[in-house]
Deep mutational scan, measured.
Amino acid sequence: ARCQGVVCAMKEAFGFIERGDVVKEIFFHYSEFKGDLETLQPGDDVEFTIKDRNGKEVATDVRLLPQGTVI
Score class of each variant (00 low, 15 high):
Ala1Leu: 15
Ala1Cys: 13
Ala1Gln: 06
Ala1Gly: 12
Ala1Ser: 14
Ala1Lys: 15
Ala1Pro: 02
Ala1Met: 07
Ala1Val: 14
Arg2Gln: 15
Arg2Met: 04
Cys3Trp: 04
Cys3Pro: 03
Cys3Tyr: 15
Cys3Ser: 15
Cys3His: 15
Gln4Gly: 03
Gln4Ile: 14
Gln4Val: 06
Gln4Glu: 07
Gln4Asn: 03
Gln4Asp: 01
Gly5Trp: 02
Gly5Val: 01
Gly5Pro: 00
Val6Asn: 05
Val6His: 12
Val6Met: 13
Val6Ala: 14
Val7Pro: 00
Val7Ile: 08
Val7Lys: 02
Val7Asn: 01
Cys8Val: 12
Cys8His: 15
Cys8Gln: 15
Cys8Phe: 06
Cys8Gly: 11
Ala9Phe: 04
Ala9Leu: 06
Ala9Val: 04
Ala9Tyr: 04
Met10Thr: 15
Met10Pro: 00
Met10Ile: 06
Lys11Asn: 09
Lys11Thr: 06
Lys11Ser: 06
Lys11His: 14
Glu12Val: 07
Glu12Pro: 14
Ala13Pro: 06
Ala13Asp: 08
Ala13Cys: 09
Ala13His: 14
Ala13Gln: 10
Ala13Trp: 07
Ala13Ile: 08
Ala13Ser: 13
Ala13Phe: 10
Phe14Lys: 03
Phe14Ile: 05
Phe14Ala: 05
Phe14Gln: 07
Gly15His: 03
Gly15Phe: 01
Gly15Arg: 00
Phe16Gly: 04
Phe16Tyr: 13
Phe16Cys: 06
Phe16Asn: 04
Phe16Leu: 09
Phe16Gln: 05
Ile17Thr: 01
Ile17Phe: 00
Ile17Glu: 01
Glu18Trp: 15
Arg19Leu: 07
Arg19Thr: 12
Arg19Asp: 05
Arg19Pro: 10
Gly20Glu: 09
Gly20Leu: 09
Gly20Arg: 14
Gly20Tyr: 06
Gly20Cys: 07
Gly20Pro: 14
Gly20Lys: 11
Asp21Glu: 06
Asp21Tyr: 05
Asp21Ala: 07
Asp21Ser: 11
Asp21Arg: 07
Asp21Cys: 05
Asp21Leu: 05
Asp21Asn: 10
Val22Trp: 04
Val22Met: 14
Val22Leu: 13
Val23Ala: 15
Val23Gln: 06
Val23Trp: 07
Val23Arg: 11
Val23Phe: 11
Lys24Cys: 08
Lys24Ala: 09
Lys24His: 08
Lys24Ser: 07
Lys24Asp: 05
Lys24Tyr: 05
Lys24Arg: 15
Lys24Ile: 04
Glu25Thr: 13
Glu25Arg: 09
Glu25Lys: 12
Ile26Gly: 01
Ile26Ser: 01
Ile26Arg: 01
Ile26Thr: 06
Phe27Arg: 08
Phe27Asp: 04
Phe27Glu: 13
Phe27Ile: 12
Phe27His: 07
Phe28Trp: 02
Phe28Val: 02
Phe28Thr: 01
Phe28Glu: 02
His29Ile: 06
His29Asp: 12
His29Ala: 12
His29Pro: 11
Tyr30Val: 07
Tyr30Arg: 05
Ser31Gly: 10
Ser31Met: 06
Ser31His: 11
Ser31Ala: 10
Ser31Val: 05
Ser31Asn: 12
Glu32Asn: 05
Glu32Thr: 02
Glu32Cys: 03
Glu32Tyr: 02
Phe33Val: 05
Phe33Leu: 03
Phe33Pro: 02
Phe33Lys: 00
Phe33His: 02
Lys34Leu: 09
Lys34Glu: 13
Lys34Asn: 10
Lys34Val: 13
Lys34Gln: 13
Lys34Pro: 02
Gly35Ala: 01
Gly35His: 03
Gly35Asp: 10
Gly35Glu: 03
Gly35Lys: 00
Gly35Thr: 03
Asp36Arg: 13
Asp36Gln: 12
Asp36Tyr: 04
Asp36Trp: 01
Asp36Ile: 06
Asp36Cys: 10
Asp36Phe: 04
Leu37His: 07
Leu37Glu: 03
Leu37Tyr: 11
Leu37Asn: 05
Leu37Phe: 09
Leu37Thr: 10
Leu37Lys: 08
Glu38Trp: 09
Glu38Phe: 05
Glu38Gln: 11
Thr39Tyr: 08
Thr39Trp: 05
Thr39Ala: 12
Leu40Pro: 00
Leu40Gly: 02
Leu40Ala: 02
Leu40Thr: 01
Leu40Ser: 02
Leu40Phe: 02
Gln41Ile: 07
Gln41Tyr: 07
Gln41Leu: 07
Gln41Lys: 12
Gln41Asp: 04
Gln41Arg: 12
Pro42Leu: 13
Pro42Cys: 12
Pro42Ser: 09
Gly43Glu: 00
Gly43Val: 01
Gly43Lys: 01
Gly43Thr: 02
Gly43Ala: 01
Asp44Trp: 04
Asp44Asn: 11
Asp44Cys: 14
Asp44Leu: 12
Asp45Asn: 15
Asp45Ile: 11
Asp45Glu: 13
Asp45Lys: 13
Glu47Ile: 07
Glu47Gln: 15
Glu47Tyr: 05
Phe48His: 00
Phe48Ala: 03
Phe48Pro: 00
Thr49Ala: 10
Thr49Pro: 00
Thr49Arg: 08
Thr49Leu: 10
Thr49Phe: 08
Ile50Leu: 11
Ile50Pro: 05
Ile50Val: 12
Ile50Arg: 05
Ile50Asp: 03
Ile50Ala: 05
Lys51Glu: 14
Lys51Val: 10
Lys51Cys: 13
Lys51Pro: 02
Lys51Asp: 12
Lys51Ala: 11
Lys51Gln: 12
Asp52Trp: 12
Asp52Gly: 12
Arg53Cys: 11
Arg53Val: 13
Arg53His: 12
Arg53Glu: 13
Arg53Asp: 14
Asn54Pro: 04
Asn54Asp: 14
Asn54Ile: 14
Gly55Trp: 04
Gly55His: 03
Gly55Thr: 03
Gly55Asn: 12
Gly55Asp: 09
Gly55Lys: 10
Lys56Asp: 06
Lys56Ala: 09
Lys56Tyr: 06
Lys56Trp: 08
Lys56Arg: 12
Glu57Gln: 10
Glu57Met: 09
Glu57His: 07
Glu57Lys: 12
Glu57Arg: 08
Glu57Gly: 06
Val58His: 10
Val58Thr: 13
Val58Leu: 07
Val58Phe: 12
Ala59Cys: 02
Ala59Glu: 01
Ala59Trp: 00
Ala59Asp: 03
Thr60Val: 06
Thr60Trp: 02
Thr60Leu: 05
Asp61His: 05
Asp61Lys: 01
Asp61Glu: 09
Asp61Gly: 09
Asp61Leu: 03
Asp61Asn: 15
Val62Ser: 02
Val62Lys: 01
Val62Gln: 00
Val62Pro: 01
Val62Ile: 07
Val62Cys: 02
Arg63Lys: 09
Arg63Asn: 11
Arg63Ile: 10
Arg63Met: 09
Leu64Asn: 03
Leu64Cys: 07
Leu64Gln: 06
Leu64Thr: 12
Leu64Pro: 14
Leu65Ile: 09
Leu65Gly: 08
Leu65Ser: 06
Leu65Asn: 11
Leu65Asp: 04
Leu65Cys: 07
Gly68Trp: 08
Gly68Arg: 07
Gly68Met: 05
Gly68Ile: 05
Thr69Ser: 14
Thr69Met: 10
Thr69Phe: 05
Thr69Pro: 15
Thr69Gln: 15
Val70Ser: 13
Val70Phe: 08
Val70Glu: 15
Val70Ala: 14
Val70Asn: 11
Val70Leu: 12
Ile71Cys: 09
Ile71Ala: 12
Ile71Tyr: 11
Ile71Glu: 10
Ile71Lys: 14
